[in-house]
Amino acid sequence: MQKKSWKFGTREVVYSAIGAALYAVLSLATNWIQLPSAGNVSFRPAIVIPLFFGVVFGPIVGFIAGFLGNIISDLIAGYGLWFWWDLGNGIIGLVPGLIAVWMTTYKATKDIVWAEVFSVIGVLVGMGVASVSEMWVSGADINTVIFANFIPAIVPDLINGLILLPILLIAYAAIVKRSGR
């Protein structure tokens, strides 16, 4: 069956929900996992979930996984609702989803490299949008936006995403091969 980028059928409805719930749960779960070498930087390994769901199931699923997952995570943690940061997380999942139709085996070097490249773009654009929103919401200047919001947000996201995404793609390739789906 030919893949369609912007399709939102039953399968996409289900995987959007699973992606969002998974992103929320893993974000909360890994909050208490201490990474001593990372100092005070907030690490969120779960950022790989919207990236992965985007690459595998398409841009809409990636977007909902990031957007809704961040909302649910913040709702459970009691941090309230920060629409622009939720939107930024959604974009993080949406951009890698743009290459979902070109994915073939998920474990081929070409597939992994493209997934990584689009993930980097997704993180930069998503966190860029979220950070710039602070100029409108909080009246922050561009220096504050770059050094207090953008850089602290992208560095851990890129490190986590780029390391964990290939691992998940290779694991998924094994499942696809075994189940024939």
Partner: peptide, 16 residues
């Protein structure tokens, strides 16, 4: 989309 949202909220305890 609304159903996806509903489903996500219901999945959270299961995935946890």
């Amino acid at each position: 989309f609304a159903y996806s949202m509903e489903l996500a909220f219901r999945y959270v305890p299961t995935l946890a």
